[in-house]
Design a protein around this nucleic acid. Sequence first.
DNA 1: GCTTGCGGTATTTTT
DNA 2: TACCGCAAGC
Length: 749
Amino acid sequence: MDRVESLLAQLDPEQRQAVSHGEGPLLVVAGAGSGKTRVLTYRIAYLLAKGLAHSHEILAVTFTNKAARQMVERVETLIGGRPQGGFVGTFHRFALQLLRNHPREAGLPLRFAIADEDDQRRTLERVLKRLAVPTERLTARAARSRISAAKNALLSPRQFAEAARTPDQLLLAEVFAGYQGELTSAGAVDFDDMLLLSVRLFEQEEAIRKGLTDRFRWVLVDEYQDTNEAQARLLKLLTGKHPNLTVVGDEDQSIYRWRGAQVENILRFDQTYPGAKVVTLGRNYRSAEPILRAAAAVIANNTQRRPKKLSSEAGAGVPVTAYQAADEVDEARFVAEEIERLRAEVRPGEMAVLFRINAQSRPFEAELVRRGVPYVVVAGTRFWERAEIKDAVAYLRLLVAPDDTLAFRRAVAVPPRGIGEATMELLEHAAGEWGVALPEAARRLPATLTNRARLSLEKFFGLLEELRAQAGTHPVDEVVSTLLDRSGLAAMYSEASEEDRARRANLDELVTAAAEASERGLDLAGFMDEVALVADADLRATGEAVQLSTLHAAKGLEFDAVFLVGMEDGLLPLRREDANSIEDLEEERRLAYVGMTRARKRLYLTSARIRRLHGKQMPGRLSPFFLEVPRDVVVDRTAAAGRDPFRATLPYPGAPAAGGWGREPRTPSPEPRSSGGRESGPRPPGPGPRSSSSHPDGWRPGLKVRHASFGSGVILQVQGTGAQTKLVVYFDRAGRKTLIPSLAKLERA
DNA sequence: GCTTGCGGTATTTTT
DNA sequence: TACCGCAAGC
């Protein structure tokens, strides 16, 4: 019992209450910074220590691989060993595993493929084309998200069609059916299908469901506010009649409504699970008081929530800083200057610039590069989304599943081998005629093919055979190497262009990823499942750099200093052309709330009076959310910056009449074109942070360098000395790279 | 069947 | 502003 006692002793009363809850459903409403992960991990440790659960009886579900990994690690340190036999992973991983174990019962081919977003888009484009749907009526993009929503709501194409009334819905029903038909004949499932089919499997195969219900006697779910209907249903089926289900979440941090997440799941948890115990964690250990007060005041305007209060346990702190910039360049300048100033006491890795949309990151990057401040942009073009990677992966998928039609379509087209639209149509026709999958039809080399196409296909399949033979006997990374080499995928990219070299470098990274997978004992099929399930965010090493991130990507993280930028009406809340419902506005407000509550000690709220975005100028009216922040917790630095006092920002119509910054009398003024920003004078593109100590080899942040492949760049960061020296360099063309100067051909520019 | 140029369009993106 | 997808030329 000692163990149990000592676990509980490390918790506050509410946390303890949640952790030590016995059997039955439990909802932990965990406000920002209140120790959500702590409760989850301690609860697992508690159940094990108390002997209530065996580790193989525990199923813990998260949304990201990263969260899952963290959970495992933390539980390990708590219980001093690795929990055996349970499942800790994402919803999708759980579902995929289930379907891989029971493909037949799920109505899937033995080696079904996974259609990624790209496959989905291409498939939908074909369907839309076939149905002659004009793009003005429905784009592939729109269709994808609406079909996804239907699947999340557990609707089959048929059910959807039956419910369809408007011409719009009827059209979508047709597209949905066509899309699903294509997926089926390609032997593929998309991400939504994984969940949907798992639900169906549970509903139809009582034995399978019961097997799992009996096995996983304890189920724990993280970020429950982000579950969609399919996920909620899956949990309900899985936990059976006596649900030992613990869910942790916070409706105020639900920011994935556009992806099917239903706040209602968490708001109505006690109705779905009658008798559920509800514990609210109300102590915030993260944010200083002014930050918490600001955030609380904003979120209090939402109606879709339980009213609750968070008390700050993190001290009085300093007021929130506000700054209204002249334009986005001035905003970036202010932020970068402030970051430089803060570096005296705050490590770069403890600072973050958070924005609503990725397109906002440019000016900040420019300013930070100029000053030699190390930074990372979280989520640029993601590794696994890159064309060159997808091309190679398509080949690999074909090795695993020869009839993966979607992969075939992609692989056969790159590098160009004389197989184009005409040949594809011919093959499609043959496939239909013979009733076989498209790749199979291609393998049979229909007589109607031109000689050129025939030879080309023979060669293509010959290569696949060769690789498949190698895959049987060699580690994954070797297969990938051979593939890149023999297919000509690597040769497509010349040494002449820097962009091409970056692509080659990416392909090398793919080999590295394969080698790692191989070391973990995965075969090619396992590697492919991994690739499908792994988001790039999981691979990202943060290091000591300021993070530039979207608000979405910042969820779950915390920083000493947070710059929430672009607080303008239309940007945050983001204005979209389709329906700006109250629900949409509340989700935007939650985004602002999530952003603000990432901050521990310092929070900055900035905006621009004029913003160029997408090449257009946007009028920079202050965000209504900004106006919701109580004045007494804010210090406005706009005037103190020595520029003209800000003006011309009309208060948001719906904003509270009192308070807010938009009300000061404004001097009418000429277009504030180039008033701000430049006034502080151009900064010398100087040698970066003065703090950087000199390196024996002379490398220092701010130094301009040239690399044989990546071209010219500037050093952001220097790590280690001697042969261990690593340089983080920002290249004009290739972006951020980490290099070892003793290996890389790097010279001073 | 593959490359060049125009116009339309732009979110957020855990898997 | 930037990219991407489509339409016309080689």
